[in-house]
Design a binder for these strands. Structure first.
Lengths: 187, 187
DNA sequence: GTCTATAAAGCGATAGAC
DNA sequence: GTCTATCGCTTTATAGAC
């Protein structure tokens, strides 16, 4: 049984958790119905496009969160070293120190990716570009900044995979620490 | 339509490709039937346990390949630097420069993981331990060797995720190169 | 050993009462 | 706006002919 949620905006976070924990295909409408406390009729009232629209809404919400909490701060002027530490803290909090999966990364590996190719790509591209831009403002040359940004994203995603596979949260925490340290040495 | 394969051993690679390209849930029996050219009756003759047994057989085959081509060479005595280069080459070839997904990593992110927890964990643990042991023989202290090994695995898995998400094979190639370089600087 | 036919269950999605 | 009932389809798995 799930919570009672009044509007579409309140449903999206529950959908996101369902997709994260069960996978997009594994989160059937009956699972979603149980978790949200809403009947299928209500779900289709909020999302006439069905699961496809639910997935798109969840990806949009994730992108909006990162835009506000991670990308925008990176783009804002400010101490680069402080920005890196803030990014690390936000990422660690969001992924609950590795206990939470990155839905966008999971979609990318799965063939669910082919249903939301633009949203998956844009999420990572926006993150990479925001981080690379910040590094450039900190004095790093453009090609090196871009490579370092890609490397940081790889570190986050890889740490999530290995952390889940080994079932060891420390793997994620240590990986994030190395990511932060490597970015710091560039500045 | 698929190839005609005579025995169970010949079917497993086709199953692996089906799971990689469609995901474990997305690779339905009808898809598998088409790709292997075998009817459902034949498939259940080879794998009485159904998809569960197919998944386990594929994971076992992947583990066997890496055991022979990656883990064992790492455990064998020999020049550590040459061993690192050989590992990089084997990994790059196996994942087809990023165009192929790591099924074990995909299972780890998806909740399919809960169906094969031991096999997913053992694959990464064996890789990490073989690599860490090789680094130790090269003179790296045990804790640093283990961390470097975990970091290398993170690099591979993260590069596969980002490469797929951005649809850019160069992301994988560059990530592997950084992995190799970082391991080299330890020796 | 391989096939076709079929069973039983679950899926996403819809209709219509309230 | 929310529910229940139901549609049509696909799923995994089995049975039985050959």
């Amino acid at each position: 049984m799930g919570k009672a949620v009044g509007d579409r905006g309140g449903v999206v976070p529950l959908l996101a958790e369902a997709f994260r924990e069960c996978g997009f295909e594994g989160a059937s409408l009956s699972v979603i119905s149980q978790r949200t406390g809403l009947g299928k009729g209500s779900l289709y009232n909020f999302f006439p496009g069905g699961k496809e629209e639910m997935g798109a809404a969840v990806l949009a919400a994730i992108d909006a969160w990162f835009e506000a909490e991670v990308f925008a701060p990176l783009r804002a002027a400010g101490d680069p070293r402080a920005a890196i530490t803030a990014m690390r803290a936000a990422v660690d909090a969001y992924f609950r120190s590795g206990r939470r999966v990155c839905l966008v990364g999971a979609f990318a590996l799965d063939n669910v990716r082919e249903r939301f190719p633009g949203q998956v790509r844009d999420y990572f591209a926006a993150w990479r570009d925001a981080l690379a831009g910040m590094l450039e403002r900190g004095g790093v040359a453009a090609p090196e900044a871009r490579e370092a940004a890609e490397d940081a994203l790889i570190q986050v995603q890889g740490a999530l995979v290995l952390c889940r596979a080994l079932d060891d949260p420390e793997v994620f925490t240590a990986g994030l620490a190395r990511m932060e340290q490597r970015l710091m040495t560039l500045l």
